[in-house]
Design a protein around this nucleic acid. Structure first.
Lengths: 462, 462
DNA sequence: GGGTATTTGTCCGTATGTATG
DNA sequence: TCATACATACGGACAAATACC
């Protein structure tokens, strides 16, 4: 944008000339770049075309730009670059954290390579974008398109045992966002209990929003309800179907106790984060907590980011009817954060059975990797035991040969292998030394799992 | 999802049978729907396939489902629907607000019919989805992909006179979201001044976040800086390039005064919402406020939702370097809210010049409608004057024949025409009776503008 | 893949204000 | 006072290249 001063003694064409020359010299306009056409620039600057022409002619004769008839003006390769170079030196390059490069990363998020249903997605995308009409491009429902909410409701009913009305569902761009939104709906000053260790993204989301977080211990069944009761919390954020990072599945009995805790006092809520429930390997499936909730105490969070791909920014939240009413009665709800095309694509993906097929395929893929991991870990029985193998795409390893978490992580790092210490997921002050690490196996190829685990066995042996 | 109780006296196959029968009777499974295959269901429930077969056989013999060899089981059209129907009656239909249906709506958001670049978007979408590799589906930078941030930075430099580093830009799903995020970055307890009347979505966003809002008056040049000074606010939310809803363009002098206000005290910030700047019809373009800001006081908000389509949920925020550092140093930034595909498509759309061409086309389209509106309004000079005609896609009409806002809106409504009273955009208590209404002309066809305006002329005459 | 509408550099005529002689 | 030259700014016409459908 060229700032013009109209009643200056410097003529207009000269101001334009000066500005563009400077841009070229400072290489803000690079060689070969097209200049705006004389007409367009004139219109934009509200001046005559010939004024622009004069400026361009001047630049032309001085060799800064060249003209291609009927095409446009283009910036020339300026020969003597002596006046530039300064700029690049001036600007301090923001140093990137030089993360060590790992040969293998037992990452806890991400999906299996090739696991995204490319073809189906592309096909549906084309389908959605081909349907004519302007509807696709008008602002939609702030809670999400009715179609996808209906489809999600049906999915939740059949796959997770959650019976809800589409009107209870809010579609949002990721769990982080939905938690922000939830915070708005619930009002400030909430005391939220979280399992410890827990999913730290959610922890920081809530901290950033100014919530008070009360870490609560857990045993092999999940969060300790007595401890929760004593904590004074009025909400609990839990992951019953597969706790992150500890990996336990909350059994029925504990679920009922938890639900009872919430129901025993008004305005108590449970946030059930069901991020992982699609992948389960052992034991009978247990319906989501929200499926047993008769009194509207459970807020259910689900996502397609884990099951489809992290870059697909679609999550959903099922609110108790009363909370949904609260939100809508606030007036001026926040605009929906997922583009309508993505919503429509995903709706078709669900409706036409692609999602189910995708899940079945991925279940098989992950089951394979899971079994491989289990087999290889069993060969390390003299070093460690493992748990969390009922679900999800990561395992928890506990050392019984005296190895500490820190030592295990460091040794692995030296060998070019990234593993994750459990203590990283402990809530703040309570960070203690542990003897456990996490191994996510979703992103690694089978042969890499084999190689990496073989190496880990070697370096973790005393 | 079928909840099974393992050590119940009811046999497993019977539990499955009962559950599915109930689903069919309550029409949660509809006629023609495919049941899960016996293999799949058995795997999911962790039971033997023959148990499922027994349940299916029972349903088959009772006519609830039919089997199609080599394909699957399908729900039959159940004859006597006497047991269902209840469900639909039970469920109270959430009554839709029965908005009167308008023949013509002078809506203030939305885009011209046919204004979305369908073909280009589809082409780029195909391009993006065709590029192989898993990169597309891994979680990206929390602030947005580097590519699109670079492209936006270049656009801002050339089109809005804002010089910023891509590292200062955050991509987010809509202004509502970015304001939430900004609130997290700035910390709580901010006193934010807003022009009055203003863009109420932003107002409510900030209110929902618990901000204290101080309405400040404005004259024909924009917000009154003295009043702002006296208000005690430490931030100001302004729309210098085209104030909504009043439509004035803030002249240079006032911009400088405003900037001086911000710079004269530490921790004062201006939020510049540049929602509308793409469309300008008269007068020389003025660079954005952020372009003059040397001391990092201006937070710039821009969006593609107005210029491309409301359903494209992509906005961007340029933060002063210090605030960006604050945000990143918080640790655990919020995940990006725009899907990577949308980001990539938009990046190409910007890079390959589609956006510029699109803007030029839309500028022409809106200029046409704008001129038409102005012409028709001039014929109504005995009824009203108008203003805000320098930019944007709406005009402000002020009556001088004694007509009040309320009366004008009601008369129009009776004639099936939706117009918007200015007082709707006044901040809370200060809602007063006005004699002004807003006419957005983006979504109406030319001939409809003509018809609707002719009718308005008739009904607004005394 | 082919036809049409739009965009683009180029050329040209004109208007205004100023300086000069 | 007038004629001339020059600098600056405006807008229309033309043919080729390009974009779009």
């Amino acid at each position: 944008m060229i700032p013009l001063i109209e009643d200056s003694r410097v003529p207009l064409y000269r101001q334009i000339y000066d500005y563009i020359k400077k841009e070229i010299q400072e290489e803000k306009m690079k060689a070969g770049e097209k200049l705006p056409s004389s007409r367009l620039l004139a219109k934009n600057l509200c001046i005559s075309r010939s004024t622009v022409d004069m400026a361009y002619d001047q630049l032309l004769s001085e060799g800064y730009i060249e003209s291609v008839p009927c095409k446009g003006y283009y910036v020339c390769q300026v020969e003597g670059l002596y006046f530039s170079k300064k700029k690049t030196a001036e600007k301090p390059v923001r140093e990137k954290k030089n993360n060590p490069v790992y040969r293998w990363d037992f990452a806890l998020n991400g999906i299996a390579s090739g696991g995204f249903p490319h073809n189906a997605w592309r096909k549906l995308s084309r389908e959605v974008l081909s349907q004519e009409g302007d509807g696709l491009f008008q602002l939609g429902d702030p809670c999400g398109e009715p179609g996808i909410r209906q489809a999600v409701a049906e999915y939740l009913h059949s796959a997770r045992g959650v019976d809800c009305d589409p009107d209870q569902i809010i579609i949002g761009a990721g769990n982080d966002y939905l938690l922000m939104l939830l915070w708005v709906i619930l009002g400030r000053n909430r005391k939220i209990a979280m399992e410890n260790p827990t999913y730290l993204s959610a922890y920081y989301d809530l901290i950033h929003m100014g919530c008070q977080i009360l870490p609560v211990g857990q045993d092999s069944q999940g969060i300790r309800v007595e401890e929760l009761e004593q904590s004074g919390a009025d909400m609990a954020y839990v992951m019953p179907s597969h706790q992150f990072p500890m990996g336990m599945v909350m059994p029925m009995k504990r679920r009922m106790e938890l639900l009872k805790w919430a129901q025993s006092k008004a305005e108590r809520y449970i946030i059930e984060d069901d991020y992982d429930s699609e992948f389960r390997y052992k034991g009978q499936p247990i319906p989501a907590l929200a499926g047993f909730d008769q009194k509207g105490c459970v807020i259910y969070l689900g996502t397609f980011s884990k099951s489809l791909a992290p870059s697909v920014r679609v999550s959903y939240m099922v609110l108790p009817v009363s909370l949904m009413d609260t939100y809508l009665s606030l007036g001026h709800p926040f605009s929906v954060t997922v583009s309508k095309t993505d919503q429509k694509i995903l709706e078709l993906f669900l409706r036409e059975g692609y999602y189910e097929r995708h899940l079945n395929r991925m279940r098989a893929v992950y089951k394979n990797k899971h079994d491989l991991m289990v087999r290889l870990l069993k060969e390390m029985a003299h070093i460690c035991t493992f748990s969390g193998e009922n679900a999800g795409v990561h395992l928890l390893v506990r050392f019984h040969n005296g190895l500490t978490e820190r030592e295990a992580v460091l040794r692995a790092e030296d060998a070019g292998i990234k593993v994750y210490g459990v203590s990283e997921y402990r809530i703040l002050e309570s960070k203690t030394e542990e003897d456990q690490v996490l191994l996510g196996y979703a992103t690694l190829k089978d042969e890499d799992i084999e190689k990496a685990m073989k190496e880990l066995k070697k370096i973790w042996e005393n």
